[in-house]
Design a protein around this nucleic acid. Structure first.
Lengths: 229, 229
DNA sequence: CGTATATTCCAACGAATATTGGAATATGTG
DNA sequence: CACATATTCCAATATTCGTTGGAATATACG
């Protein structure tokens, strides 16, 4: 094989991966899958697209070996192949944010709903949560919390938040997080909490960003009680 | 703006970056630009495409803010916006290699030309080069060496290697490197060296991979003499 | 100012992609 | 086995992208 042909082949393979990521819907599916395994139906619902379209996109992602599928009964469950895919998503998003001004404007629009608390860096938030000075609240669906969550975080899905406000101590600031900076659940939660008199703010990071920074995660509920009260 | 519209906008912006990287030719241009600033003509020649096509691809890359252009006389020089773009390229390639089997097979074909020396890890190679136990040889064009090169490396472009073999001590192993794993110059150099009785092997990494690993680089020729002889 | 050089813009065509509707497959249930 | 459910496959359409040829732009030189 000639040098040129070989090179073409090599770059083509790498481009194939990039092409798999070059679709908004597929990126959204990837971000959802970062939260854990999901069925096609769930993925379609979360990404607000038809099941058929979700299936087609998942096929592309599977072809690029970014996700893999498992059959359970009549359902097909998809998951990311490994954490490098999640890291890639975080890096790509970070790169995009550094470069595109419109993106920064839109991200600001999401953040605006949050409180005034200065954004705390990872290590610092972790320490304050450990000491119980701040309540870290995971507002994603329960399944995703069970799959992986920030240390010391407790789970109240945003859909149940209104009815479960009583579980939260009113004398401490609450930091809500969800799937990541593009997810709106934490913003909604902050709005609900603020309306009820809580000192609430939003953490932009999700588990993917947290892990990307090398910070620890919890995978069960065994540590979420340590900071309860 | 509704939540869905906002999300669509956000993912679309990220996808735009991925789309810019989703073309073999553009990836090749990026890798060439990692070696330093180049004119459109040089880029087209290195990537073996027409100037017009190179210009079109560079326009895409510029639109995505991955590269920026500078005019000097009647030439246009392009460069990567910052090192995050180079890091992105390395990460994308690494991800692709982990995933795609064909790619691994092709990469092996490139490496096959190399010697039998066990591949040395970065730190170790650096130390051996510092002590002069091994000759690190940069076989890229002189301009690229001047822009940035591995510490203790000396420059002999592959095109001049045949005529300058006398400059190399024959009693020490030579490790040649070039632009990165997909570049063929180092393989060619190893073949030439081996034919002349040198104990030659190839380093797959280029400056991008080296920097990605957090290892130091040299930017002038001030340190390439330390290990000369 | 005319000419040569380097690069970009514009137009056009074929190839690839996203999306949707309808049919097909595979699994579980009565 | 008939039937419901979850998902995938296939076909068709609109759109986008890669590539090339020809014209246009910007700069340098005589």
């Amino acid at each position: 094989m000639s040098g040129r042909d070989l090179k073409d082949l090599l770059y083509e393979q790498v481009a194939r991966i990039a092409r798999a990521a070059a679709s908004p819907k597929r990126l959204e599916l990837i971000e959802i899958l970062v939260q854990g395994e999901k069925s096609v139906e769930q993925l379609a619902a979360d990404a607000e697209i038809s099941v058929k379209l979700a299936s087609a996109h998942l096929k592309e992602l599977r072809l690029a070996r970014l996700v893999e599928a498992r059959r359970e009964g009549r359902r097909m469950f998809y998951r990311l192949v490994d954490r490098h895919v999640a890291d890639f998503w975080v890096m790509l998003r970070t790169l995009a944010e550094e470069r595109l001004l419109e993106l920064q404007a839109a991200t600001r629009e999401i953040a605006e709903g949050g409180g005034d608390l200065a954004p705390m860096a990872g290590e610092q938030l972790l320490e304050r949560a450990r000491r119980g000075e701040v309540i870290v609240l995971d507002v994603r669906p329960g399944m995703e919390y069970a799959n992986a969550h920030l240390p010391y975080a407790r789970s109240i899905p945003v859909s149940e938040l209104r009815d479960r406000l009583g579980e939260l101590p009113a004398d401490r600031p609450v930091v809500a997080y969800c799937r990541g900076p593009y997810c709106l659940m934490a913003s909604e939660a902050v709005a609900i909490l603020a309306r009820s008199g809580f000192q609430a703010s939003r953490l932009e990071d999700g588990v993917a960003e947290w892990r990307y920074q090398g910070l620890p995660l919890a995978t069960a509920a065994h540590d979420s009680e340590e900071c309860t009260e």
